[in-house]
């Protein structure tokens, strides 16, 4: 939709960790616009600031300087409860480290975002099972995270991000632990969502994965180089 305002609008954002000798500029003046229904891949060497940028995009962290707008709304001006609403209704986030809740079954993990949006438990269970089925894990629904392989945990994390059918899907290396077959399945799901008009931003190290996106962004030392 040309001419409409961007879904993600990052304006000259920096993120600085630590101080003095240990000061790290994880992001150093990043400006980025992502339009509705875009499919963007972010690449870059390890430590280039990809996850840092993603956490800011997901409203999990705040920039040190600069502004970040979602749908034209400055995230810095939102209250705690408004942020909770944005994270729950608008964004689906896949963590690089999965971040599943321990000692809690896969299906209960996937249900969690639905519970916080007030969906009744029967409907929740149905949609969670559907999302698990989508990533090929319907038969592992009752397993707890420590009973799942790394790739399976990653797919549960993907299912949890998909389950609310968010307008914006942010995935930090969603295929990092997957073989080519599982990678293909997850990417197919992403492409279906993209075709349905959802915006997707993903981080990857794999060129084949990056090549599937409409747009490729490369980070180097906290700066966008292409």
């Amino acid at each position: 939709m040309p001419g409409s305002r961007p879904v993600l609008d990052v304006r000259d954002v920096t993120k600085v960790y630590g101080e003095g000798d240990t000061l790290v500029r994880a992001l150093d003046g990043v400006t980025l616009r992502v339009d509705r229904a875009d499919y963007v891949a972010i690449m870059g060497s390890s430590g280039s600031g990809k996850s840092t940028l993603m956490n800011i995009l997901g409203c999990l962290d705040v920039p040190s300087t600069g502004a970040y707008l979602i749908d034209g709304v400055d995230v810095g001006s939102l209250s705690d409860s408004q942020l909770a609403l944005v994270r729950n209704r608008l964004i689906g986030f896949v963590f690089q480290a999965f971040n599943l809740i321990p000692r809690t079954s896969a299906v209960a993990n996937v249900e969690l975002p639905l519970a916080y949006s007030g969906i009744r438990s029967a409907e929740r269970r149905r949609r969670a099972m559907f999302a698990l089925d989508l990533v090929g894990l319907a038969d592992r629904a009752g397993h707890q995270p420590n009973q799942l392989s790394g790739g399976q945990q990653q797919r549960v994390a993907v299912a949890r991000a998909l389950v609310t059918e968010p307008a914006l899907l942010l995935a930090d290396e969603p295929t990092g632990n997957l073989d080519s077959h599982a990678t293909e399945e997850v990417l197919a799901v992403f492409e279906d969502l993209n075709a349905a008009g959802r915006t997707i931003v993903l981080i990857t190290h794999e060129d084949e994965v990056g090549a599937r996106a409409d747009r490729l962004i490369t980070l180097f030392d906290g700066r966008i180089v292409s």
Partner: peptide, 16 residues
């Protein structure tokens, strides 16, 4: 605390 971080990332309001 980590668990609370996950819940917040998934959109749990502080009150809940």
């Amino acid at each position: 605390t980590r668990e609370i971080g996950i819940r917040k990332a998934l959109g749990a309001p502080r009150r809940v």
